[in-house]
């Protein structure tokens, strides 16, 4: 019996069936080698003051550097900056992996950020993601594919402002 994974997502009754249909292995060494180095298209985002404010409110951070122009201007930053994880809102990079991964479910495994320069209101940030690792592991929920992507964020002056290494789990 062939089950479409996307159908399963819509029909909880099939969840058990999907579990049984989970393969014990999916990735081959050659697939991993094909995936590593896969790049996304660049995504450009204009960093808007209003978006920074809404993001700061959403994470419950009242730091005036994100919302108060007067305080931010007299700070070491010289103007409004974005919170450390604000770049999560700068689009989702999708590296072009040359094969389909037949799992719909997604979990975020974690992120590792490095900051080189402020992200300022008014900046234009370009994000490019590159797959740096891919692996699989069997767990309680069946087979899981771990995809590590390094996202480099540069500003309009072509300065590297930040990198984020993110692990996504597909299962």
């Amino acid at each position: 019996m062939t089950l479409s994974y996307s159908d399963c997502r819509l029909c909880p009754v099939l969840q058990g069936a999907r579990r049984l249909s989970t393969p014990s292995s999916f990735l081959t060494e050659s697939m991993i080698q094909q995936a590593i180095g896969a790049k996304s298209h660049p995504i450009n985002t204009v960093i808007e003051k209003g978006a920074i404010r809404r993001f700061a409110e959403a994470i419950g951070d009242s730091n005036p550097l994100y919302i108060d122009e007067v305080v931010a201007r007299s700070s070491i930053h010289g103007g409004i900056i974005a919170p450390p994880t604000f770049l999560r809102s700068a689009g989702t990079v999708r590296p072009e992996i040359p094969f389909e991964i037949p799992f719909d479910r997604l979990l975020d495994g974690g992120s590792s950020w490095e900051y080189h320069s402020d992200i300022r209101a008014g900046d234009i940030i370009t994000a490019v993601g590159t797959v740096t690792d891919m692996s699989e592991r069997s767990g309680r929920v069946g087979l899981m594919i771990f995809i590590t992507t390094e996202i480099r964020y540069t500003n309009q002056f072509e300065e590297l402002v930040a990198t984020q290494v993110n692990t996504t789990i597909r299962y």
């Binding site: 994470i59 419950g60 550097l65 919170p83 450390p84 994880t85 974690g110 590792s112 900051y115």
Partner: peptide
């Protein structure tokens, strides 16, 4: 991740700069 960012930036204060967060 953002909550942990706030933990660090609140503590570092206005003269501190977060360099890495993971």
């Amino acid at each position: 991740n953002a909550f942990l960012g706030t933990l660090m930036t609140d503590w570092a204060g206005p003269l501190g700069i977060l360099r890495k967060l993971s």
